[in-house]
Amino acid sequence: MAWKISGDLPISQQLYAKLQTDILSGVYPPGSQFPPVRKLAMDHSVNPNTMQKVMGLLESEGLLLCSSTAGRFVTEDQALLLKKKKQVQESFLKEALAEARALGIDKEQMTDFVLNHFDESEENL
């Protein structure tokens, strides 16, 4: 898995962000079984207790549902998924905007760039 722990942020925070994105982007589709903690910990090369803690966070948020016998499942609550997705998207856009501002990119340049390149880059993907 192409994911590396970076910088000085707590590992649980980085993992949480990564798994939340995976759920929201449909890597783990709604209603699907979530992999067991041990496997996730191995895949990400992180401590199983840290992974367990992150699962707890995702559960308390409602993104994951825990059944005592069958493990964890991704929620099928579309409204919740959509709401969370919006939150994550907006915070990403805010950060991107702040960085663009720091580089001296003005509003016009930004809109022009989005209008000209948005579709094109989508095709390239």
Partner: peptide, 9 residues
């Protein structure tokens, strides 16, 4: 309080 996942461990 959310169920503490570590408590079982």
């Amino acid at each position: 309080p959310p169920a503490d996942p570590l408590s079982e461990v």
